[in-house]
Amino acid sequence: MLSADGTHLVEAYSDDVSRLVRRSMLDSIPDGEPHRWLYRVARAYPSRPGKALRPALCVATCRAFGGSDGDIVPVAVAIELLHNAFLVHDDIVDGSERRRGRPTLTAEYGLGLALNAGDALAVLSNQVLRRHAGCLDEDLAERLLSEFDAMALRTLEGQATELGWRRDRVEELAPEDYLDLIMHKTCWYTTVHPLRAGALIGSGGDADLRPMVRFGFYLGAAFQIQDDLLNLLGTEQEYGKEIDGDLYEGKRTLPLIHLLRNARGPDRRALDLYLGLERSERTPAMVSQIRELLNAYGSITFAAAYGRGIAGAALDAFEAAFAPAVDGPDRDFVRALIPYMLDRRT
């Protein structure tokens, strides 16, 4: 269980970094013409306060490994811009209506402008990173760019796999398949890359980056599983996205995979029927029925326990990854993220 102090530490630290990064992020987005149809649209998500988990993790790790903000903030900005680009595209693919408590770009500006703004954010992310890399030692710059490119591709591979599962109605899935998916789709860009980039830059290239994969994966998996659960159990006010959105989309979350493996007879037939529908054909009554099945088969309890088992290893992995880091608030923040990931409501 996360203490009140732990929550405060995580949220205060993230808020500080969020402000720092948001300002730099908005500075990096041009504001000329066509303002109304591109730059204003592209600024929409970066302007909305978010958790800033990725930049905070990146900045804290860099600081803990001896780096300065000037070395790392542009990297954190690039990561957050790419994250925003992914969000825009995800919202289009998923047909989502709410993001960070407000209408999605698609809902506000239409699909075409939203898609274009997402592309712009991805291009700007690359621009920020490459401009900063030009100021670094050549070898370090090459490693940073290579890390970034690998992370972006892994994320796209994960996204493609998830969409492919839904398109081809792949249902014979195990929790191990889910872990493989989220390693690509979520963990690499949410935790592993921010940690590795922070340690790389902070240590001037000396840090061993492999332990960051372990820690990042355990942390990122706990984050994603909690996200699956919040989508079912949270409130829209806290979560910022529509509740049950994953169910409407038929997303292969851990609870749904558990249900697919265990539902029998008429329950299984109802599930198959549901998953064979398009999102627009799924009604609130159908979603309620699937929710009921998730409860009846213990799928939500299963996902929560599965996530806690993984998070249990994160602490040891953290100690190994951060053994060379300096004690202090930055290291404390990263450590406090472990229970925070499991107990967060937003």
Binding site: R143, G205, D208, L209, V213, A221, Y306, G309
Partner: peptide, 30 residues
């Protein structure tokens, strides 16, 4: 049991992935 299952599955995946990863140039003693 479920917690242990999750942990083992996650660790197996990590081991497979790390075996296929090239070493970072910053890698030192492991």
């Amino acid at each position: 049991d479920i917690q242990a299952e999750g942990l083992r599955a996650a660790t197996d995946l990590l081991e497979r992935m790390l075996r296929s990863e090239p070493d970072g140039r910053g890698s030192r003693e492991r």
